[in-house]
Amino acid sequence: MLSQGYERGKTDKTFFIKNSCNDIILDQVYVDNIIFGLTNESLCEQFVATMQGEFEMSMMGELNFFLGLQVKQVEHGIFLCQEKYCRELLKKFNMENCKEASTPIATGCYLDADEARVDVDQTKFSQLIGSLLYLTASRPDIMFSVCLCARFQAKPKESHYVAGKRILKYLKRTTEVGLWYPSKVTLNLIGYSDSNFAGCKVDRKSTSGTCRLLGSSLTSWHNKKQACVALSTAEAQYIAAGSCCAQTIWLKHQLSDFGLNLSKIPLFCDNTSAINLTKNPVHHSRTKHIEIRHHFIRDHIINGDSKIQFVDCENQLADLFTKPLNKERYNFLKNELGIINFKNVN
């Protein structure tokens, strides 16, 4: 491919780009699957011809199914979902006719090791978690609840299995939900980071939840229990902001391969102390113990790669990844992040 005048992505070795007189060809290779996009439709045939010269190719036409993701390309955007997989999943766990739930996790739900309760089959529980984890590729709305259940895979108890089933009940109600990427919005990259302080009842570690949007499209998100115990909310938030920053930097590099250079990418955080920590290197008695690697974010803010901004709790979109929420709040966040049913796309 390189011989045809393509350039390999600097960060992603499976990404190729070719610029020729204002027309750009982008393609992403996944072993034997190739997705490509062209700014000029007439180049399409030419591209296919060159590829067919090299390999025996089967042209599949417009992108509609890729690595288990169903893709719908319409006039004003792209819709991504795993509806088919979701249906199969419900069937596999005999939950096709179950009751429906409006959220994947109850608001007051706190899972702990639950030593006293009855054991459940570990294999079955792991299968459930594994299947659900794959579904999170297009369903960030179940990310928090799946990750919470996943922590108990080593010794699953009845209560954990019940929590897992609740996710399936929620999926039953929202099988057709996926990610909506609208097209007519300004191109910018923003990140949100949040944490729940001492959220894990077992070892009192906090959970970071972060997400990043390109325009209004949710492109990457993550939920992770922090590796160390935070002493204050600010510290937990600071660590979360750090991991969000790391992801943002990766996206920034990736976008620069696309020919888009961004700087001062805004990162939204709802904790003023954590924001001040990134600006002011003064050591306070309550912050001086913070590990060096968490100061990564401070460096990137000084370099101008990123900037951190305050957002009120109401508009903190990463809330979805850190705590169980009530129905209203949950639906509000889902709407804001574009996690919707294709029918409701307007």
Binding site: I35, G37, M57, S58, N64, L80, S183, L214, T219
Partner: peptide
Amino acid sequence: EAVKLLLAYACLKGFRLHQMDVK
């Protein structure tokens, strides 16, 4: 994520995506 980023980018730039595979 890289695939999703490409999708989002293509969408904002308004170009269609195609796919093919190597036999």
